[in-house]
């Protein structure tokens, strides 16, 4: 743009660069997008088209068989319900805990702020690991309860640092001093000034947490064995990766090939169903995510 305004002529070399870059970037875009398109198109195709590998760009023999098969089973509905619950409840826990930690740690006038911050950041670089973590959850009697999905990951230190950096750099110190002169206590200041002024960063970390909960797999894999509590990702793993397609999902078709076709087709539909919540909000939140990366990159 600047070049255009100044009427600097683009040399031949620059012209060629622009053309080759355009081609390269279009190719990159296609490579990223193609797998997503294939999954979407296949999910709307017929079982036969899937089995014979006819789908390469657009749906072949448009059908909703795959989606019918997905919603015929209870598992997916249970998983969906549980995942929604874990996402909402877990994110609330995360937000409360994160902001409770972020604000005091942003106050450099608090004695011991440095060492306390160290207590937090140390957990980023060292942890008890898989087995002690499992034993703790077991000893707390949290195995196979909803709590093991909500509590163990209550604070992501990384998100806490993002919130802390934001508070530090966006809320002027003078405001605190003025409020203190007016007799505002720290808790009052936190509730009435810091939280309302941190809307932008709360939006960012809410999105981070919510998507992390929706996509989370490890805790459920380690701590849950009751099917009624499984989040969607566990059912997805069983069906997509371990290939355990339950017969209830399939039509009562005696033909093995038809069953096989549907069981493959439903995987594609399942992927679409599982990704939809994230993809629906994606266009709206893209900017926030980028903002989060930027705040996180600047260490406070």
């Amino acid at each position: 743009m600047a070049a255009k305004n100044k009427k600097v002529k683009h040399s031949g070399a620059d012209q060629r660069l622009e053309i080759s870059l355009t081609i390269a970037m279009v190719i990159v875009g296609v490579i990223i997008l193609y797998p997503l398109i294939i999954v979407l198109s296949t999910s709307f195709s017929s079982p036969n088209a899937v089995m014979s590998g006819k789908v390469w760009l657009y749906p072949v023999d448009l059908s909703l068989e795959g989606y019918k098969a997905v919603f015929r089973t209870n598992d997916v509905l249970i998983g969906y319900r549980n995942s929604l619950f874990y996402m909402v409840a877990g994110t609330i826990v995360n937000l409360v805990m994160t902001m409770l930690a972020a604000y005091p740690l942003s106050r450099s006038d608090m004695p011991g702020q440095g060492p306390i911050m160290m207590i937090f950041t140390f957990t980023m670089i060292f942890s008890g690991g898989m087995i002690p973590g499992y034993l703790l959850i077991k000893d707390l009697k949290m195995l196979n309860t909803v709590w093991c999905m909500l509590i163990p990951g209550a604070i992501s230190i990384h998100n806490m640092i993002i919130a802390r950096t934001f508070i530090k750099s966006n809320i002027p110190k003078e405001m605190l001093e003025a409020s203190q002169i007016d007799g505002c206590s720290d808790i009052q200041y936190f509730l009435k000034m810091v939280l309302p002024l941190s809307g932008a960063v709360i939006a960012v970390i809410t999105l981070y947490y919510a998507i992390a909960h929706w996509n989370a797999y490890f805790n459920a894999f380690m701590y849950l064995s009751d099917k009624e509590l499984y989040p969607l990702q566990i059912f997805l793993k069983n069906i997509l990766v371990s290939n355990q397609v339950e017969t209830e999902m399939l039509v009562e078709d005696s033909q093995v090939t038809a069953q096989q076709g549907i069981s493959e087709l439903l995987k594609y539909s399942l992927i679409v169903v599982a990704v939809i919540p994230v993809m629906i909000i994606y266009p709206f939140v893209q900017k926030h995510f980028v903002k989060g990366v930027m705040i996180g990159a600047v260490k406070g």
Partner: peptide
């Protein structure tokens, strides 16, 4: 476009 796949879960990625 290139940011999109970041938000897909590992399970779904492997499934795909």
């Amino acid at each position: 476009i290139t940011y999109v796949p970041h938000f897909i879960s590992v399970v779904v990625l492997i499934g795909m």
